[in-house]
Design a protein around this nucleic acid. Sequence first.
DNA 1: GGGTGTATGTTGACGCCGTCAACAACGTCG
DNA 2: CGACGTTGTTGACGGCGTCAACATACACCC
Lengths: 206, 206
Amino acid sequence: MAERDHAYHHGDLRAALVEEAAAMISEGGAASVTMRAIGSRLGVSRAAPYRHFPDKTALLVAVAVEGFRRLNRRLRGSSTGAAGSSVERLRHMGEQYVRFALENPAHYRLMYGREALARQDHPELREAAAVLLEHLIGVIRVHQQRGEIEREDPRAQAYVAWSAVHGLASLLIERQIDPNFDVDALLNQTTETLLVGLRGAGTATG
Amino acid sequence: MAERDHAYHHGDLRAALVEEAAAMISEGGAASVTMRAIGSRLGVSRAAPYRHFPDKTALLVAVAVEGFRRLNRRLRGSSTGAAGSSVERLRHMGEQYVRFALENPAHYRLMYGREALARQDHPELREAAAVLLEHLIGVIRVHQQRGEIEREDPRAQAYVAWSAVHGLASLLIERQIDPNFDVDALLNQTTETLLVGLRGAGTATG
DNA sequence: GGGTGTATGTTGACGCCGTCAACAACGTCG
DNA sequence: CGACGTTGTTGACGGCGTCAACATACACCC
């Protein structure tokens, strides 16, 4: 039997659990993740995960944190590497954000779904999300200094921008948007509207 | 024993189930809704609900549909009744949308959470959401005709606007936004940015 | 190198869950 | 007044998360 190198001890069960849970989530949604099922898929008993995570929620939090890391990496690449004007970069960042959500819907849902992750506070999760926000704020500051968008509280502007892309991603994922609609066009129009709104203020009232 | 008027038969158990489930959701989140618990709260056995709903998901769908109805009623009031310019009315509508979500977080989550409602399609739920969208499109058309926002596909503009308010509501509900932040100010800035973006297009690029 | 302690994995059990089948009471209509 | 459909009840089943008791493997010290 050459099937298991480490025999009794798994080697790195913790990492394997997070990886496998992520795979199951993208295959069958968060509901398909069961302590029994995940153990069975890894050739391990149902209670084995409890040596590495206090409960199921903690495991899911680890999966969500890993999701934030991947999303962060992707956004970081698009905000520094891309060509074109700097506003173009901000737009590209928004696009990458929405595409990530569309490519990993169940994972994205888990990252933001407070319901699935119980009512408790999970500091690591909060921090992973905060890193993303801080990065966005930094990018916005740069654009402010170049006079490309209005100089208001960059944190507020970041929240507005985040709301726009998160809202679009969320509605698309939850199939609230007509599937016949051209996603790329809608994405373009969203970032366009957002950037115009951030740049020129004036009064929209009256 | 004067405690039950109808003795064996409940009277209108179906309506009572929807109402009670909604109450439990706002008290303890969707996870606290259990066929056993809801039955017990209504003085009825755990299997009684199955005479009115094929399964638990169907009951939750009914609750979500009721949520959409309430939200619709609220938005309809704010888009026709409010004072001020007509753009002011659109802004007010966005505000009411977000406030509804903040006042009924668990209910709102249920309305848009595809996860909780399984993977199936629920026509009534889809239709309830569609009514909301159609109303928004109608309001946008009116503003287009008055030249207050750019004349593009009103459906696309509706999606953009919906994304903005849904995103903000969602981030607030899931506590992704610094609680020290002034919600009213953020809400104002979101609607402001959105309206400016919808009104003046030009090119944000370069 | 043998013994010991700790980390890791297993098994059995518990209570909760959604759901179904079989049964019972109610109300209605001939 | 009797037959019947509707509505509610009870018992049971399998699946779930989790805990306690037990077993194995590895690491380290003499």
